[in-house]
Amino acid sequence: MNVTVIGSATAASPEERALRDLYLEHGPALYSYVLRMLGGDTYRAEDILQETLLRCWNKQNVADGEGMAVRPWMFRVARNLVIDAHRTRMARPLEINGNPWLDDMCAEADDIDRMLSSVVVQDALRSLTPAHREALRATIFADRTTQQAAEALGVPQGTVKSRVYYALRSLKSALAESGMG
């Protein structure tokens, strides 16, 4: 069995050398073209490039170098492959995960769960020190930056940052203790 690499210096046959030369001459431009069409998806672009070269291998006589312009043909094949792949993906039915009827049955429980969760979160917030609660209210709940909160609270920005950090850490451990973590 004769195995050769397309980039190797000594290909076994004139067809393989011609294909390697085609790849070296047109591959980078073709890859860039396909990559732009696919929005930067490198994996799919490599697949399209490989399939284009395989079709060139199968359909064209690349070794005899007849007068046919191979580059436009390769770009057309690549374009058609991209379009075919897009159409195939669009023709597939939309996949759904799970059972939607089960979600509908559990909708009432979600409202109760939200209410119970809010009670647990309020209890966890009450367990914080007043300075930590005040820092959270001034930043997260008021949708302010730490600089804006520092000005509103009359403390340095670094103090607000550390209070928010330790408040969130304490809040996380309080919620973990209550089973919400």
Rank of each mutant, 00 (worst) to 15 (best):
N2R: 09
P130N: 06
A9V: 12
I48P: 01
H132P: 00
Y23G: 01
I96C: 08
M105R: 12
Y165P: 00
E25G: 05
H26M: 09
Y166C: 07
A45F: 02
Y165I: 06
L24Q: 10
Y166W: 15
Q148D: 06
L128C: 08
M74W: 04
A18P: 00
G40I: 11
L53W: 01
S127T: 06
I83T: 09
R126N: 09
Q147I: 08
I83R: 14
P100S: 04
L128V: 05
V119C: 10
V164W: 06
D104W: 13
E134N: 10
N97Y: 09
M115S: 11
S8A: 15
E95V: 15
R133Y: 08
V70C: 04
W73P: 00
A45Q: 03
A142R: 08
N2T: 07
R17L: 10
I140H: 02
I83L: 15
V160A: 05
V120A: 15
G181S: 09
E134Q: 15
R92N: 05
R44F: 09
A174N: 04
T52L: 13
H86A: 14
T146Q: 12
E51Y: 05
L19G: 00
M68V: 11
W73C: 05
N58E: 14
S32N: 12
R76N: 13
A174Y: 03
P14D: 06
L38H: 02
E108M: 12
L24M: 11
A152H: 07
A12H: 07
C56T: 01
A142N: 08
E177R: 12
Y43N: 11
A45H: 03
L153E: 02
L30P: 00
A167G: 06
V70Q: 05
D84F: 11
S178Q: 10
T42N: 10
V62K: 00
